[in-house]
């Protein structure tokens, strides 16, 4: 383990993973609350087209992915806002179009695109440079501060959108903020876990946290802790066992979910048997 911290490459990978592990569930709490858990997955598909556009134009693939994913996220939000039923089908077309377009464009860009494509789909923590880390850190800080500072308003919008409108909140602007933040988070997480696994880091820590929490704030903070821990352990295990870091991080998060869900279920059974005295709960806040 100490050797791990001696490697500069490993330290960069660890820092990048930690930023993403903490940021993704912070946003994910809002997405899960409004039952849009899969949106990160869809935006991830479209971000691949952005990567392809960036490679073709010889620009930064990450930057192009942010722009294309943000445009797509805003479009999805406009469809959702109208509440039209065909929105569901429109989304499917958009998402599959996104990944197909991405594969075609990345292929057209040539230059050992096979390996390139896989690194975007499944992450490549090992190739994170100092510049990458600065970009990930900067965008991560922006995501984190927006999601935490605006928590009361974002909570209100996700919990009961009509009430938020009658409160005079800028509901549309807040929804757009969530959409763009989703795109940014997907794109920075692309380096760590890959576009196909991004959504897992947004959703699984939240699912884990809410097994034992009672409130929204508690769920969000616990999910951030779970996400950070999964990122740290995932990178450490992949270093020791020489496994793919992105997949390892996600497997650690899922293992944590299974363990916590089983423990919570067991505790509920025990509490029920010993009568209705659930007032001693240690995590009661």
């Amino acid at each position: 383990m100490t050797a791990m911290f001696g490697s500069e490459l490993m330290l960069r990978a660890l820092c990048a993973a930690l930023v993403i592990g903490v940021c993704a569930p912070t946003l994910g709490t809002y997405l899960v609350q409004r039952r849009m858990s899969m949106i990160g997955d869809g935006i991830g598909h479209v971000a691949l087209t952005g990567v392809g556009v960036g490679l073709i134009l010889d620009q930064s693939p990450v930057l192009a992915a942010v722009v294309v994913a943000a445009l797509c996220a805003v479009g999805v939000e406009l469809v959702r806002e109208r509440g039209r039923t065909p929105g569901d089908l429109a989304l499917a077309v958009l998402f599959y179009g996104g990944i197909a377009g991405g594969v075609l464009l990345v292929g057209a860009a040539g230059r050992s695109s096979g390996g390139n494509l896989l690194s975007y789909l499944f992450g490549s923590l090992g190739t994170v440079t100092d510049t990458d880390l600065a970009v990930i850190g900067g965008l991560g800080a922006a995501v984190l501060s927006a999601m935490l500072l605006l928590r009361p308003a974002l909570f209100a919008v996700c919990h009961d959108e009509e009430f938020a409108r009658v409160c005079g909140l800028p509901v549309r602007a807040l929804n757009m903020l969530l959409a763009v933040t989703t795109a940014v988070t997907v794109t920075i997480a692309m380096r760590a876990v890959g576009l196909l696994l991004v959504s897992a880091l947004m959703v699984v820590p939240v699912a884990t946290a809410q097994q034992v929490t009672r409130g929204f704030r508690g769920t969000q903070l616990a999910a951030m802790a779970v996400g950070g821990l999964a990122a740290f352990l995932g990178v450490a295990i992949s270093w020791q066992a020489d496994t793919a870091p992105g997949a390892t991080i996600v497997m650690v998060a899922i293992a944590a979910f299974v363990v916590v869900a089983l423990a919570a279920g067991l505790r509920r059974t025990l509490v029920r048997r010993s009568g209705p005295t659930d007032r001693w709960l240690p995590w009661r806040t």
């Binding site: 609350q33 409004r34 929490t213």
Partner: peptide
């Protein structure tokens, strides 16, 4: 009734605090 957007638990106090935003 309470909105459908409740995939994450929220305490009674958190829901009521939303009323202060206006």
């Amino acid at each position: 009734r309470l909105g459908a957007g409740s995939g994450v638990p929220a305490t009674v106090a958190e829901v009521v605090a939303a009323g202060l935003l206006a």
